Deep mutational scan, measured.
Amino acid sequence: MEVRTIKVFTTVDNINLHTQVVDMSMTYGQQFGPTYLDGADVTKIKPHNSHEGKTFYVLPNDDTLRVEAFEYYHTTDPSFLGRYMSALNHTKKWKYPQVNGLTSIKWADNNCYLATALLTLQQIELKFNPPALQDAYYRARAGEAANFCALILAYCNKTVGELGDVRETMSYLFQHANLDSCKRVLNVVCKTCGQQQTTLKGVEAVMYMGTLSYEQFKKGVQIPCTCGKQATKYLVQQESPFVMMSAPPAQYELKHGTFTCASEYTGNYQCGHYKHITSKETLYCIDGALLTKSSEYKGPITDVFYKENSYTTTIK
């Protein structure tokens, strides 16, 4: 009895394709271990004539594949690729409408935090270190965002349907971005203890939790000093293409032309909904596939993004 075979390709990165001759009487799992086709788990399936010449994702289970996976995804987590594939199996079914010149995501599976993050990423200057993220990001900007969303979920250790947080998501993504040249110098002034300067680099240099107003941050924000008295913390120097200011959701007025974009969060910790506000020729609110415009805006804002380049204080 002759062994019926077909020729397929296996890959971990969709760049390096490895030619395989597979036995049609055995499952993919018996031949390769966990195997995925377009995100779908085909591990328990036997090869079919229609699979001839198709590319299958496999887990990096030998040295060659491990090197290829690390170079593309910059992670050695053995569960990463499987999590990416199972997320992709959902995100490829989502709709990605162009809204006001940006790629958004039609609401499904509690994905409003991903839509808000995706919209924000198209408006701030950011370059990702893992080629996987950078490639998928370019495709997302062009309207094909399924891979990018699935990668975000995998890097953030999230599953489809789980509630997510924009600030946490951005923080994970910033860790995989090139923020080497970003720098922030802060000064804390206390009447009792004097003053202390701190220099922050990388992710810490672009994120701040405690106030939404970048102007206020430049002037000074009140913080408790270690001595128990009130101290003032203010920005001395900022070198970065953008800054992200966050605070627990509270009524906040966004003035046209003073910011790049913002995240609105309605609801409580267990259950809520994100919308995205962007400042173009007027203010726009993007909620999944829905767009509304207004000249002014007041609502429960939790993150505001500002364009920056270089700032030095005039406070002496």
Rank of each mutant, 00 (worst) to 15 (best):
I6W: 07
I6T: 11
V8D: 03
T10M: 08
T10G: 06
T10N: 09
V12E: 07
N14T: 10
I15Q: 12
L17C: 07
L17W: 07
L17S: 08
T19Q: 02
T19M: 10
T19Y: 11
M24Q: 12
S25D: 15
M26A: 15
Y28A: 05
Q30N: 07
Q31N: 13
L37D: 13
T43L: 06
K44I: 15
I45K: 11
K46W: 14
P47V: 08
H48N: 13
N49R: 13
L59R: 08
N61K: 12
T64D: 10
L65E: 09
R66C: 13
V67P: 07
E68F: 01
A69I: 09
F70I: 08
Y72V: 06
Y72L: 08
Y73L: 05
D77W: 05
P78K: 11
S79V: 12
F80Y: 04
F80G: 05
L81S: 02
L81H: 09
G82S: 15
Y84H: 07
S86C: 15
N89I: 14
H90K: 13
T91G: 03
W94P: 05
Q98R: 14
S104R: 04
I105Y: 04
K106I: 09
N110K: 05
N110L: 04
N111H: 03
Y113R: 08
L114S: 03
L114T: 04
A117T: 09
L119I: 05
T120R: 01
Q123L: 06
Q123S: 08
Q123M: 05
I124Q: 05
E125D: 14
L126F: 08
N129H: 13
N129K: 12
P130D: 03
A132E: 03
A132G: 08
D135L: 08
D135T: 08
Y137P: 04
Y137V: 06
Y138A: 15
R139S: 13
A140L: 13
R141T: 11
G143K: 02
G143M: 05
A146T: 02
L151N: 04
A154S: 07
C156H: 00
K158S: 02
T159M: 12
G161K: 05
L163Y: 15
R167P: 04
R167V: 03
S171G: 08
L173R: 04
L173S: 03
Q175C: 08
H176Q: 11
C182W: 06
K183D: 02
V185A: 02
N187E: 14
V188Y: 07
V188M: 08
T192K: 11
T192A: 11
T192I: 09
Q196S: 13
Q196E: 10
Q197R: 11
Q197V: 10
E204W: 06
E204Q: 15
V206K: 00
Y208H: 10
M209H: 15
L212I: 08
F217D: 04
I223V: 15
I223D: 07
T226D: 10
K229V: 08
A231N: 01
T232H: 05
T232P: 01
K233C: 14
L235G: 02
Q237H: 15
Q238P: 00
P241S: 08
M245D: 03
M245Y: 00
P249D: 02
Q251G: 07
Y252D: 00
E253I: 08
E253D: 10
H256S: 10
H256M: 13
G257H: 08
T258S: 12
F259M: 01
T260K: 06
C261L: 02
E264G: 07
T266S: 12
G267C: 08
G267R: 07
G267I: 08
N268H: 14
N268D: 14
G272D: 00
H276C: 11
H276F: 10
T278S: 12
T278H: 08
Y284D: 09
G288L: 01
G288N: 08
T292R: 10
K293W: 09
S294R: 12
Y297L: 02
K298V: 15
G299A: 08
G299L: 00
G299I: 03
I301Y: 00
I301E: 00
D303A: 02
D303R: 00
D303F: 00
Y306Q: 05
K307P: 14
K307F: 09
Y311M: 10
T314V: 12
T314G: 15
K316W: 15
K316H: 15
